[in-house]
Simulated assay, not measured.
Amino acid sequence: MITAGDFRKGMTFELDGEPNVVVDFQHVKPGKGAAFVRTKYKNIITGAIRETAFNPTEKFNEARIETRKMTYLYNDGDLFYFMDPESFEQIPVGKDLMGDAVKYIRENDEATLRFYENSCFAVEPPNFVDLTVTETEPGIKGDTATNVTKAATVETGAVIQVPIFIEEGEKIQIDTRTGEYLGRSKE
């Protein structure tokens, strides 16, 4: 059990049977009246953000979030299958839980899956991935204005804005958190 007075950023707790993470908090001691903890928290499953004032002695169960690195195997329609590299257990994940991760994960790539009570609620790709450009328009010779970009489709089907000098077949590095081109791959 944890109390609201123990809240820190990133701490997880259960409220009404659902897991939440503390986004921001502030201990308030007004001149009159009792102290309270103004808390901004996010529901881990739905993503809803709320602000509430709690009594510092209010008690909550700690939400145990399990994080596992797993290997993406394949997709079968709306299900994506991941394998635990230690136990070789395969877990199907619905397309709705994949989010943007589906744009950056190839077969046999590693991803981070988050579980609450043995149920997967989030899939996160690595922060940086190297993908091959499969389709893009050729650059126009002489077009050297700064920050000129064009759309490029990578092997996973994601469309990324890249500089005009990038050509089909090149490997590029992408930041999966923002979807931005970082540079040519060093592989």
Rank of each mutant, 00 (worst) to 15 (best):
M1L: 09
M1A: 06
E14H: 05
E14C: 14
E14W: 13
L15I: 06
E18V: 11
N20L: 07
V21A: 09
V22N: 05
D24H: 04
D24Y: 03
F25D: 03
F25N: 09
Q26V: 01
K29V: 00
P30T: 03
P30F: 01
G31A: 06
G33L: 03
A35W: 02
F36P: 05
R38L: 10
T39M: 04
T39R: 02
K40N: 04
K40W: 05
Y41M: 08
K42M: 10
N43H: 14
N43F: 06
I44M: 15
I44N: 03
I45D: 07
I45S: 10
I45Y: 03
G47K: 07
A48S: 14
A48D: 15
E51Q: 05
A53C: 09
P56Q: 08
E58K: 15
K59W: 15
N61M: 11
E62N: 12
E62K: 06
R64K: 15
I65N: 01
I65H: 09
I65A: 05
E66P: 08
R68C: 08
K69L: 12
T71D: 11
Y72Q: 03
Y72F: 15
Y81T: 14
P85Y: 13
P85T: 13
P85Q: 14
E89Y: 13
Q90C: 02
K95Y: 14
G99W: 02
G99A: 07
V102R: 12
N108F: 12
D109R: 03
D109N: 05
E110D: 11
A111G: 00
L113T: 09
R114S: 08
F115E: 05
E117T: 10
N118E: 15
N118F: 12
N118Y: 07
S119D: 05
F121M: 07
E124W: 06
E124T: 09
E124M: 06
E124P: 02
P125Q: 06
P125R: 11
P126C: 13
F128N: 10
F128L: 13
D130E: 14
G139E: 04
I140N: 10
K141T: 13
D143N: 12
T144E: 05
T144W: 01
A145Q: 12
A145T: 04
V148N: 11
T149V: 00
K150C: 07
A151I: 01
T153F: 03
G157C: 06
A158V: 00
V159M: 00
V159L: 01
I160P: 02
I160M: 01
I160N: 00
Q161V: 00
I166C: 04
E170P: 02
K171G: 06
Q173H: 02
D175L: 00
D175I: 03
D175P: 00
D175G: 00
G179L: 11
Y181S: 05
R184G: 10
R184H: 13
S185F: 02
